[in-house]
Design a protein around this nucleic acid. Structure first.
Lengths: 260, 260
DNA sequence: ATATGTTATTGATTTATGTTATGTCATTTA
DNA sequence: TAAATGACATAACATAAATCAATAACATAT
């Protein structure tokens, strides 16, 4: 349970891990999956449970650990010197936090838990060595990095050139698409722990305006929002508002592990 | 000459290349620089001269070539279905166009020349093999990728949370810092081929508003803009407007080739 | 149950930025 | 020399979104 209950699910054996196919180190074609899982288990230090609103990583700090988000939601963000901040992306189960610690001592952003989360913890140096020794994994790192850049560039176009309505609709659709990819969600309804302030911080708006935008989306019958759940009532119309075609949502396959 | 004359400089021998230290394949610690230069010369197919406003790469196309920008300016951009567009970043001499073609068949953005440019052309497959075979180069690819992501995230905070004034001031300072890194520039004055429309498309503004913003910057004595040249008259004040400290400009060293 | 804090709604008002239109140069083309 | 073009400036007006402020709806703790 992502939220509602105060704590997140605890990870079990890696070879049964429900998000294993999303994970960085889940290399296809490096021996049987079971062997990979065993190797990963060996690198894993353990896991950590955190409540919502905890800083997982603070910009500029060094750390000898690397994390994977097993359950719950988190986000990457930047704080400006005067206190304004920008959420760079939301992190969903299966996401790595963050890739670049494989190679660098510090990151250029901070990470905070949004709901209660559970993290799988790895030894940074060991994981780096493990990846370094396996070309297929190295290439997967590049894939992940390319995907990250592509996502950031998409966002740039959102913030620079799209209206608040478009941004909101796109956020909802992209989140659903990503959750579907992790097969955490099937229908048109999903657990939605974002407060309007988070949405505002991600879309470059104020929470007041986000409230109005969602009011409009509801009034037009596009979505329904309960406390921690969002339902897409009219996918067709929502995609039109978002300026998204179905193929755009599948387009993440552009950088999928099997491509190239 | 970047502009003014209709054409860009033609690259000479790679071991004399003025931007070689910026280039992707210029690996430190892989034998003597001369050897690297010779290897690179071997991979290079030749060069290409293009006038301003030419499409260098169109989003989604496949290509068996990879480019390096030797002289002139270009930019990466995205076009929305309805014709709006967003410039994602400006490309300066020494920049690779683009990294991800090493691994993927297509890119998620387009590239266009801003001034007359000259490009060094490489065979994609050969360059990919060359890089793949050299761990130091692989790591440099990761460095470049990390830098790209960090830059995109910086921009995200700009577009989401900073005013038009701040964005403009930051753009100017960042361009100068990058040109300095390529040692193309020494003082506070530099060749500035951007039209206000480019600035607008990069900062998520209209050209009319960019005109207003630069009017204010001039009125406050922060910068002077001639036809193709920009001079920073009051660096201190400009940095204050930009919300930038000197250390921020040096911070690119965070991901510099020597780090980690 | 009540209190307390957080999150969302809503209205009134202001502001930054967008839109449209027109003028002025400078440069290129005829 | 005239006309066409492209870049920039400026003004009048329009609008999206911010700001300010009050209240309402929830959630959690006591």
């Amino acid at each position: 349970m992502v939220n509602g209950s105060a704590s997140a699910r605890v990870p079990g054996a890696c070879d049964q891990c429900p998000v294993r196919t999303l994970a960085l180190y889940w290399a296809i074609g490096e021996g049987p999956p079971a062997a990979t899982a065993e190797a990963i288990s060996g690198l894993k230090r353990g896991h950590r449970l955190l409540p919502a609103r905890r800083t997982i990583y603070r910009e500029g700090e060094t750390s000898d650990e690397m994390f994977t988000l097993f359950d719950g939601w988190a986000f990457r963000f930047k704080v400006l010197p005067d206190g304004r901040w920008q959420i760079l992306s939301f992190l969903l189960p299966g996401d790595t936090i963050s890739l670049h610690l494989l190679r660098f001592d510090r990151l250029h952003f901070s990470v905070q838990s949004l709901t209660a989360v559970s993290l799988c913890i790895f030894d940074r140096a060991s994981l780096a060595d493990y990846v370094r020794a396996r070309p297929a994994l190295e290439r997967r790192v590049e894939t992940f990095c390319a995907r990250e850049t592509a996502a950031a560039d998409e966002r740039l176009a959102d913030l620079g050139r799209r209206s608040a309505q478009e941004r909101a609709a796109r956020l909802v659709l992209h989140l659903l698409a990503r959750l579907r990819q992790g097969s955490a969600v099937q229908g048109q309804s999903f657990e939605f722990p974002l407060r309007q302030q988070h949405i505002a911080d991600a879309l470059g708006l104020t929470s007041v305006h986000v409230s109005r935008v969602f009011h409009a989306l509801r009034a037009d019958g596009l979505v329904a929002v309960e406390r921690n759940r969002l339902t897409i009532l009219d996918p067709r119309a929502l995609m039109k508002t978002a300026g998204i075609r179905q193929s755009d949502l599948d387009a993440e396959t552009l950088y999928s592990p099997t491509a190239s």
